[in-house]
Simulated assay, not measured.
Amino acid sequence: MIAERKDAHVRFATEQHRRHTGHNQFDDVSFVHHALAGIDRSDVSTVTRFGGMEWQVPLYINAMTGGSPKTGEINRDLAIAARETGVSIATGSISPYFADESVADTFSVMRKENPGGFILANVNANATVEKARRAVDLLQADALQIHVNVIQETVMPEGDRLFASWGPRIEEIAAGVDVPLIVKEVGFGLSRETLLRLREMGVRVADVSGSGGTDFARIENDRRDRPDYSYLNGWGQSTAACLLDAQGVGLPVLASGGVRHPLDVVRALALGASAVGASGLFLRTVLDGGAPALISLLSSWIDQLTALMTALGAPTPADLTRCDVLVLGDLRAFCDGRGIETRPLATRSRSCGTNGSSTHHETIGGS
């Protein structure tokens, strides 16, 4: 039953991404062009540091799947691509392993194929400390993700209906595991209030994972006999909105959800993300062309990311938070409604005196 659900998730997610090519709120973020801001490419480093971790590139393959023979093959290809490009990678939810240990290799294949890489294990918010430790051990994981997905569970026919324990469970796991803990949404976004609460719980990093990419409300609705919850399609805040909402929370944030190309990666970094992840596009790439296709795509993204940092005068990913950005359209309306001041973002390089090629400025993401 669980394996069938995991295969269905892959099928519906792939169909969704093949249909969706339009606008999302990353398009409401644009850089002010400064023609003399560029630096030498040799001076650019893609290394990012946050929450006691160091990644060679501020890009990661986010949680997708596992738990069936087909998804195990997908995880193998994803891990090979991560190994060859140096990007970090997360497994899908390891819940199927807790129900049936015979599917262990559909997850552990990631470590087998990527022995020296940075791998994040993934559990749900109902997991006990014991299960969290088992997940880390299964992958020899470098970090642990806990995903929160109340809207997905609500629409899922067989989903959880008990959510009151999630907060206490997260706090217990934060204190009970020996690797960094990252709490992530699954595409509906983390609000400022949620981020502040997570910080109080001892969570080290949060992945805002906003709307604009894979819509799990739509996926679970497609799995129902009747599309009773179609009105929830598009629920939540966009990734860009979440990043702006996160200003000053004092918790490093990652960004995923609706990331379509390297410019979206740079936009997210400029809005305060320490690293940026994607799932749907990478999944579609692997299904179409296997590990070689994803290696090619990731290599191209890293090259283009470096090129954009060079043009914007940002020697490190964190320096992108000193670049001037304009926030327009629906995203600006969200900020107005939440009382978020966006005008200073358009002139922040002035405080450095060099139109984007400065050496000091406080980042907006608290990372």
Rank of each mutant, 00 (worst) to 15 (best):
R41K: 12
N124T: 06
N62Q: 11
R76A: 06
E362T: 14
D207P: 09
W166Y: 14
T14A: 15
G38W: 14
D27W: 06
A268C: 09
I94L: 14
F98R: 00
S299P: 13
F26L: 13
T285M: 09
V109W: 00
P227I: 07
S349L: 03
G272E: 05
R83P: 05
E341R: 12
A125T: 02
P69N: 00
A278K: 04
P69C: 08
E113Y: 02
P227K: 07
F334D: 15
F118K: 03
N233Q: 13
E15R: 13
T239A: 14
S367A: 11
G213M: 12
A3V: 08
V265G: 02
E15H: 13
G234N: 06
M1Y: 05
E4N: 11
P96D: 01
G67Y: 01
D142Q: 06
V286I: 13
K184Y: 11
Q237H: 14
P69T: 13
V32Y: 00
L244K: 07
G289K: 07
E130F: 07
S296A: 14
T214R: 04
N355K: 10
F188N: 11
G313C: 12
D178C: 01
A164I: 00
D336I: 11
A291D: 05
A273E: 02
A291I: 02
T239I: 12
S93P: 03
A143M: 07
R111V: 06
A275E: 09
F31M: 15
I74T: 10
S274E: 13
V155H: 07
I173S: 02
I295W: 08
R76M: 07
E130C: 01
V208Y: 09
D336V: 15
I295N: 14
C335E: 02
C352N: 12
G339R: 12
G257K: 05
I219E: 00
V57D: 01
T106S: 08
T354E: 09
V186Q: 10
